[in-house]
Each structure stands twice: as C-alpha cells, then as structure tokens.
Amino acid sequence: MGDRAATFACMSRSPVLTFTDKGIYCPAGDFYIDPWHPVARALITHGHADHARAGMGRYLATHAALPVVRHRLGEINAQGIGFGEALQIGDARVSFHPAGHVPGSAQIRVAVAGEIWVASGDYKVVDDGLSEAFEVVRCHHFITESTFGLPVFRWADQRDVAAEINGWWAGCVAAGKTAFLGAYALGKAQRLMSLLDPDIGPILTHAAVENTNAVLRAQGYNLPDTLLANAELNPKDHPGALVLAPPSAFDSAWSRKFGAQETAFASGWMALRGVRRRRSGDRGFVISDHADWAGLLSAIRETGAENIYVTHGYTDIFTRYLNEVGWNAQVVPTQFEGESLDAGDAA
C-alpha cells in the first residue's frame, strides 16, 4: 500500500475494502465484489465471465444485470437491487450506480462510518445510448481498471464509427458479399446492433449473440430486429446480410455456408495497426466498452478520490502516471481481464 493509504488504514480499524486472493473484500459487511474464488456472498458489477463467476453462496447484482447473470450461471441464489437503491450489509452501506460498460453494469459504492469506496468494475464514460450512462460517484477511494490506460488510446465519436461500419457493410452488399462482424456476445454485439443502419440489409446473429439479445429484449432494452442464423437458415434467402458473431465462430463450418464474405472486428485494440494486422480480418473498427485514456482520467478526477487502486490493464504505467500527477495510486493484482481480443466471451 502507498504511504497515505497505509496511514489511513492504521488510523481506522481496517480498510473498508481489502484486496485478497479471492477478490475485493469488505470486512465490515463480510462480502466480496466480483470474486474469482467461491465465497459466501458476492456483489457482482456485471455479467462478463471474469466478473460474474459460478460457485458463490449468494449473489447481489442490479435488476438490470441479473437476468444475464442468471442466464449464464444457471440456478443461483441471487438478489436484485435497483440503481441508486441503498442496502445495509453488516456495518457497510452499499449501493449500485451505472458504469456505462454494458447494459446493467454497475459501480459498487460501499460506505462504512463515513468513508466511501467505489469499485467500478469495468466502465466507460461516454453514453452509448443503450447501457445506463456512467454516473460519477464521489468517493475517497476509487478502484479503477486501466485496460486502455495509455495516452495512445482515444476513442472517436461513436457516430463516426457507426458511419464507418455502415459504409463497410454497404460496400460488402455492393460486392455481393456477406459482412461478418466480430464482437462479444454481451454488450459489444448489442451496441453495434444499435449502430447499424437497418436499411442496408438484414442483421443475422450467431446463437451466442441471439441468446443474450433475447434476455435483454425481455428486460425491455430496445434492440433492432435480428434473425438467428441457425442450421435451418438459408443464407440465400437473406441477401445483403450482416452477421454478428463472436470472433471464435469465424472461419467455421457454420460461417462458411454464407459463401463469399468479408470479416471485421470491433474492438478498442483495433486502434493499433499491429493488432489489426495480426487478426488478418478485412477491417478493424475502433470501438470499446472500456474508457479511453481521457475517459479514465476524467472519471478519476470527478470522483474526487485521493486514493486510486488500479486493478487490470496497463496497471504499472497508469499507476506511475497517476502518482506523478498527484494521486495516491497503487497497483492491485486481480484476475480481471479487461477487453480481450481473442476470448469469445470475456469482458
């Protein structure tokens, strides 16, 4: 721990949140946040696989995040909570606030005897029009990710990215090719859908994407019409289609039946030319559900927190910078993964 945090910890009985080998722990409330090993009580920020894991005794997540968590983890003992609603757990007062990462995702605010900590999970500060928009939560201690914590990452306005994607899709249609767009099944896929121009053609989906769509639609999220591309679907009946699928489904027996195609990936990593080329897809679109450099810094600034804990991403570099410009920051090792290019379904 940094000096100031250590001093603070000595003055009070014990820190509100501590970092253990099972996850982020709150002694005052005896619960964990996004733990990676089975514990009795887990508070979950959102449904991605590196944050919501199986095997917990009890789960607490937002009403908006819970359906996907249940869909993914099956039969669990879970309780829902509204955004902004406060709940007393032991000596800790807990509330959930929008993180803007994916539909339902939350930052978790924990207050004990007037000291406020916020575990932000994964977040982005711009409003994507689909997820509940990021809300600044004032606090003393802020736990942040740093997936894109380098000044080379700067996201363009999502309308510009939408125009790029739709332009590419229209070009595929004109060339008689099926457009394959790779994205995570939860979050990125739905965000992309909401950016697509339905006048260009039909949107087909891989089962992993469509299952999540069904859950989110049932909750009342407004998604455009899509069609499940299952074994019975004949691609010839849907000319000019764009297919949304996890990248792992590319170049499979399933994808090949769509005939001539172009592939594209949508990820923050596509900002790097080298990564774009390694994917050897036809196109890379730069769009992420994680905050860019400026987004991370503005979030940290606006919380008013003095103590910053950096959990995953370019942790060393980001932490060094924060310390240099006046925060009391430290790296805390976790098993969160941030935006992975290769995993079909994490973060």
Partner: peptide, 20 residues
C-alpha cells in the same frame, strides 16, 4: 517516459506519434 512506454507497446514510432 510515458511517451516511451507507449512507443514500446505500440511498436512503431510514427504510429505512436499519430495516435498520441
């Protein structure tokens, strides 16, 4: 130093400058 760290990750000076 932050520029240099970024460069070592991006791997190309011209690209690092263009992005940063």
């Amino acid at each position: 130093w932050l520029f240099e760290e970024s460069y070592s990750i991006v791997g190309d000076l011209a690209e690092t400058i263009a992005l940063i």
